[in-house]
């Protein structure tokens, strides 16, 4: 809109941003604090909580599980999401108007209901292994994000370029691979990152799908916080934030955050 900023708006916006960022700064402080209790500002700095986290076997195991699940679920969601977005953006007219909302249903069903239903109906009945169950659940969880970002990216793609390639004699299937996909590369990357982070951070669905010895990092951390309230959780948090930050810089560089926001 680009109009003048009223001082009152500036001040209240400042407070909102402070509200958003201050708690994370506190976590950062707690992670580097030498003390065994949570205090801010830290009295003396140390890396002992990071050492402790890295030595906790169940955290490391859970991190590997989370990573495997996130990568697999994201890859699967993209695999089915790309043709879906392509079809609903390019052939908008061939579908009823409600059609695309089907792919956003996972956002509207409370995750905890979804997790419970999945456990009860599919997992228990089919006796799926925990890993498969987690990947299945997370694929559904991240699918809307993939479809949305890919859809936004495809909406900016001029499909006449595809028609031009076909008119010049290229096979339609090859055109999709050689003309369409390279042009939405940034969108695919953004979708991957967004889906990946969503999966990595999930608690509510994973809660029902984890099994003996196989758990995701977020579920482990949740259990840990409930039992021991010490700064090692802050250290895990900082490690997760670091990963997120790196991922976000890549996201901004490659696609522009403003485009993801739409």
């Amino acid at each position: 809109m680009g109009r003048k900023v009223h001082p009152l708006l500036g001040i209240s916006a400042g407070l909102v941003f402070l509200f958003l960022i201050a708690p994370l700064v506190l976590v950062l402080g707690a992670a580097f604090n030498d003390a065994t209790y949570l205090a801010f500002p830290p009295q003396s700095l140390s890396l002992r909580w990071f050492e402790r986290v890295l030595s906790l076997q169940n955290f490391m195991d859970a991190f590997l599980v989370s990573l495997t699940v996130a990568i697999s679920a994201t890859a699967l969601a993209l695999l089915v999401g790309i043709p879906t977005s392509y079809a609903i953006v390019k052939h908008r007219g061939s579908f009823p108007s409600w059609f695309s909302s089907v792919f956003f249903l996972p956002l509207l069903v409370p995750e905890i209901v979804f997790g419970f239903s999945l456990l009860k109906t599919v997992i228990v009945a089919l006796e799926l292994p925990v890993m498969t169950a987690l990947i299945a659940g997370h694929t559904i969880l991240v699918l809307p994000y993939a479809v949305r970002v890919l859809g936004a990216s495809l909406s900016n793609f001029d499909f006449s370029a595809e028609e031009a390639a076909v008119s010049l004699g290229m096979h339609p299937l090859k055109t999709v691979l050689a003309v369409v996909l390279p042009n939405i590369k940034a969108g695919i990357l953004a979708a991957f990152i967004l889906a990946f982070i969503t999966s990595l951070n999930d608690v509510s669905v994973s809660l029902f799908l984890t099994g003996p010895g196989v758990s995701t990092l977020q579920v482990e951390v949740l259990t840990y916080v409930e039992q021991y309230f010490d700064p090692s959780v802050a250290a895990v948090s900082v490690l997760l934030m670091a990963i997120t930050l790196v991922v976000m810089v890549v996201l901004e560089r490659s696609f522009g955050l403003s485009n993801v926001v739409k």
Binding site: F17, L20, L24, L26, F40, A234, S237, M241, T244
Partner: peptide
């Protein structure tokens, strides 16, 4: 925008934990 999105991309557990400290 980064400032706004960043908390969204950290997990719910971390963010609840932050308020436990406070």
């Amino acid at each position: 925008l980064i400032l706004s999105v960043f908390p969204l991309l950290t997990g719910a557990v971390v963010r609840a934990f932050a308020w436990m400290i406070i």
